[in-house]
C-alpha cells in the first residue's frame, strides 16, 4: 500500500450532491456529523467544494435540470474519486422514477461505486458503506 492510498483510507472527504430529493436523505447525511454518529472520528468530513472531495455522495432522483450540474460537479472532482448513490432515489429513481422530469438514475449518468439503499437509509448504513469503501482502497 502506497502512502497515498494509506492516507486516503484515513481521510475520505465527501461532497454531498442533493438532487431532486425529499430531504430525508440530506438530513440523515447531516445527522452522521452529529454527536451520536460522529462520522469525523473515521476521518470522514463533508466538504463544501467538489475539488476537495474524494467521494461524491449523490442522493435524490436526478431531474433534467440537475443532470448537467451533476456532470459538472463530477468533472470537477479530482480523480480517482468514488461515487456513492444514497437512498432509493439515488440507486434507482425510487418513487419518482416514473416522473415527467426524471433524467435517469445516477448510474446511467456517472459511474457509481457503491449503492446505499433505503428510504431513507439509516446513518449507520452510510457509516458502514463508507467503511467498506475505504477497505477497497
Amino acid at each position: 500500500m502506497g502512502l497515498k492510498s494509506f492516507s486516503l483510507k484515513k481521510s475520505l472527504w465527501v461532497f454531498h450532491f442533493g438532487g431532486a430529493s425529499c430531504n430525508n436523505c440530506d438530513i440523515e447525511i447531516l445527522d452522521c456529523l452529529t454527536p451520536r454518529y460522529d462520522v469525523e472520528r473515521f476521518g470522514i468530513k463533508l466538504v463544501g467544494s467538489p475539488r476537495h472531495a474524494d467521494v461524491l455522495l449523490v442522493n435524490g432522483s436526478i431531474n433534467k435540470r440537475d443532470k448537467p450540474r451533476l456532470l459538472e460537479v463530477y468533472d470537477q472532482i479530482a480523480k480517482p474519486a468514488f461515487v456513492v448513490a444514497f437512498g432509493a432515489c439515488g440507486c434507482t429513481g425510487g418513487i419518482f422514477a416514473e416522473g415527467i422530469t426524471f433524467a435517469g438514475p445516477v448510474d446511467t449518468i456517472i459511474p457509481v461505486d457503491a449503492y446505499i439503499p433505503g428510504c431513507p437509509p439509516k446513518p449507520e448504513a452510510m457509516l458502514s458503506a463508507l467503511m467498506k469503501l475505504a477497505e477497497t482502497i
Partner: peptide, 14 residues
C-alpha cells in the same frame, strides 16, 4: 427554483 421538480402532482394522477 426547479432543481427539485419531480412532477409529483402529475405522478399522483397515475
Amino acid at each position: 427554483t426547479g432543481y427539485n421538480h419531480r412532477g409529483i402532482e402529475k405522478l399522483a394522477e397515475e
